[in-house]
């Protein structure tokens, strides 16, 4: 995987998730950060830090990105959400426009 095809998402605790750029772009917010020229340092480094999103939630979000790509390509499976994560996940999803 070429470096420019991936992005690094960093959780509140500093945990790093390296994922396909294509997957991260499922989030409208991340897409804006990575594509608006000059306005974000993130564009250059391919790194985004989320000081408000915990590792557990960010992991779940990354899972969703990949699930979403699969769904769009016709593989309509169910996306499981643990009940205890729901509210926090929803807040993060709201922030990420996804």
């Amino acid at each position: 995987m070429k470096k420019e095809d991936t992005v690094k998402l960093i959780s509140a605790e500093g945990f790093e998730f390296v994922i396909d750029k294509k997957a991260a772009m499922v989030s409208q917010t991340i897409r804006n950060m990575l594509t608006s020229p000059g306005s974000f340092a993130e564009t250059e480094h391919g790194e985004v830090t989320f000081p408000e999103i915990s590792t557990t939630i960010l992991e779940k979000i990354c899972q969703y990105f990949y699930w979403s790509l699969q769904y769009a390509s016709g593989k309509e499976t169910e996306f499981h959400i643990e009940p205890e994560l729901t509210l926090e996940l929803m807040m993060a999803a709201n922030y990420l426009h996804t």
């Binding site: 979000i61 969703y64 979403s68 769904y71 769009a72 996306f79 959400i81 009940p83 729901t86 509210l87 996940l89 929803m90 999803a93 709201n94 990420l96 996804t98």
Partner: peptide
């Protein structure tokens, strides 16, 4: 369309609403 994560969370909350 593919469901957004927000909507998936909302459906989940609806399922367990009494909790």
């Amino acid at each position: 369309n593919r469901p957004s994560l927000i909507n998936l969370c909302i459906y989940k909350i609806r399922e367990d609403i009494n909790k």
